[in-house]
Amino acid sequence: MALYSDKVMDHFRHPRNVGVIEDADGVGEVGNAKCGDIMKMYLKIDDDTITDVKFETFGCGSAIASSSMATELIKGKPVSEAMTLTNKAVAEALDGLPDYKMHCSVLAEEAIRNALEDYYTRHPEKRGENAEASIED
């Protein structure tokens, strides 16, 4: 029995959107090396749409796969939609994660949320426009 689904292994072996965006509009970092997982997300946002996203991850197979899948799920999407991304959606898109690895999908959700918060901090005027979407926070 394999530890991970084929989807997890595919995103782990061939992670999408790996790298750095030097002039990112929002950057989010979560986790710490002590726990063994750190994710960093970089967003490029134009006209309230995520036009590009890159990530860097220090972590296990499911942490890398979760980062990769999360970037795929928000790329090209409106900011308001990205704000609603849940860890469950990331895990489901990966055809599931082992129970003790679910925190990896939580980190992916949080990394994206942090990057979007960073974007709003830089552009406070945008927050009002997307207030509806961030009510859940």
Binding site: G19, V20, E29, I38, M39, K40, E56, T57, F58
Partner: peptide, 9 residues
């Protein structure tokens, strides 16, 4: 793995 590790960076 180091090439996209934020810790290594």
């Amino acid at each position: 793995l180091r090439s996209f590790s934020p810790v290594w960076r």
